[in-house]
Each structure stands twice: as structure tokens, then as C-alpha cells.
Amino acid sequence: MDHTEEIRIGNTADVFQNDYCGVRSISSSRRTFLGLMLSAGAAGLGALLAVPLLRFLLHPLVQATTQPSWKEIGNVEDLASVTSPVKKLVKVEQRDGWRKIVSQKAVYICRDAKGDFCALSSVCPHLGCTIAWHDDKNKFVCPCHNGQFTAEGKLFGGPPPRGMDRLESKVEDGKLVVHYQNFRQLVPNKEVIA
């Protein structure tokens, strides 16, 4: 291979500035093709290398944070006097990444139409503020966007998409226990999130 040939292939300035459709454009398109192959290879390899990184990044999203468990609220006899909703705190063990934490969550104990106990999550199904019970007004009001609920948690005003979320509850050995769960916000139907 003589030097002129070498320079022709090599020197892009010649190729680009002087001659686009002659013999030399062959070397130009070869360079372009190679460039495309290299870019495609690099992009493919980059995507492959990104897989473990993405899995690493997304790990907390696929991991359950709360262990499902039934929490004791108190003796049924002590709760017998409940007519309007009362706030009770439950301790929920949670995995917080590399920590194990015990966090307190507020639930409301109420009576449903049949007179049985019911338990309501205090988390607003709208945007997650904590709902407060107003004894004087005989209703639940969310302090953030004024969502309003009846004593049984039924929605009757404001922006929330559904009523307050009812938690599973049962009486065991004379004690009321509830199953604390979190629910998705902004959807019309109750959906459990881990």
C-alpha cells in the first residue's frame, strides 16, 4: 500500500472537504459504517452493563417492607363503650432497608352498621395525609384537602377517590386484633401495597 492510499483512507479532512462523490467517498462510507458498528456495539454493551446496575437500583422497590401481622388493639370489654371512632396506636415492625424499625401507626376503631367493631386506616386515600376524627362535627376530616368521611369511613365530600380504608379485624381470645396494611392512593378501589 503506498502512502497516498494510506492518506486517502486516513485523512478525513481530504475526504470531507474536497470530494463527496468520487472514489474517496468509499473510504468515507466505510468509516461511517465502522462508526455505526462501533456505536451500536458500545450501546449494546452499555445496555448489558446497565442491567446489574438497574437491578441494584430497583432492589428496594421489589422488596416488602412490612411483614404482615395481626396487631392487638385491646380487650373487647374495654372497647365496649366505643360508639364513635377512637384513635388507637399500633406498633408495626418494618424493614427499613438495612434496619429493622418499629413504627407507630394510627388506626380508628369504629362500629359498623351492624354494631360490630371495624378498624379504619388513618391514611387518607387521596394523598396520604393523616385524617382526624372531629367528635363535635361527627365526621372525619382530612386536614390537607378537606376530604370528609362519615363515622364508618364512607366518603361524602372532597377530592378523595374512595372512602377510608377498612382494615381487617377480628376478635381473638376476647381481644380485638387488626391486620395493618398500606393501600395505594388516588385509585377508586382499595389496593394493598406491600
Binding site: R55, F56, W98
Partner: peptide, 17 residues
């Protein structure tokens, strides 16, 4: 040490990265 143990033993691809 706990956080390194966590990312090595528990986090997906953690040991690899």
C-alpha cells in the same frame, strides 16, 4: 459494616457491583 453486609448479601446484584 451493616450497610456493606446488606448490599453484599441482600441487594440484587449488590455483590457483583
Amino acid at each position: 459494616h451493616t450497610t456493606v453486609a446488606y448490599l453484599t448479601k441482600e441487594v440484587t446484584s449488590g455483590s457483583f457491583i
